[in-house]
Amino acid sequence: MEESGTDVAKSLDHFRPVLLTLAEAMISSTLRGDLEASDIVQQTLLEAHCNAEQLALMSHGAFFSWLRSALNHNVLDAVKHLKAQKNDVRRRVRASDLEASFIRLEQVLVADETSPSEVMQRNEQVCIMLSALQTLSDNQRKAVIMKHLNGRSLRDIAGELGLSEPAAAGVLHRGRQQLAKCLKEQCDD
């Protein structure tokens, strides 16, 4: 029992940066001031601890899937709670949009590859990248997430970070360099 708990804790440590990046990418910029990705991830990990016995029996893929599902529910709950709290129309976020994003994410991660090993390999790649993003500095991480996960333009990124466009481009470029370096190190390990 204790052993399984230790395994779950290790897995949760492994997935923590992955979930954090996913949550940061899912929370739209208009909500960023009101919702903290780390709080939502913390709550998700807490729920996972409470269900440690159940999770200990799961495979690596199913474990990650459970965490994604829990994260999605927590993000949705937080958005709904925020909507109820602040009836500000500028912050209206369609729950259906978030749900659609989550469904698409599941389709990507549990895609139609022929072999389960390919699905695993792909998910592992995604996890490594999402995890590596957490090693970047705050601004670099935000810039790379906005650019490559949210598909935002340099103009938007500069506006969000409160920087000039050249400064934002510098942050973005150095973030990518750092990410590539980190990924190489992880693969070498």
């Binding site: 990418a25 500028r90 369609r94 990507v108 490559h148 996960l149 598909g151 470029h173």
Partner: peptide
């Protein structure tokens, strides 16, 4: 090279997260 490298890695997740067809919300 860097741009393409990161962009290709991130593209599956971006495809999931970016709902490009969603209409904006006007107050």
């Amino acid at each position: 090279r860097l741009y393409m490298f990161v962009d290709e890695l991130a593209s599956p997740i971006r495809a999931a997260l970016v709902a490009d067809e969603a209409p904006p919300i006007l107050p």
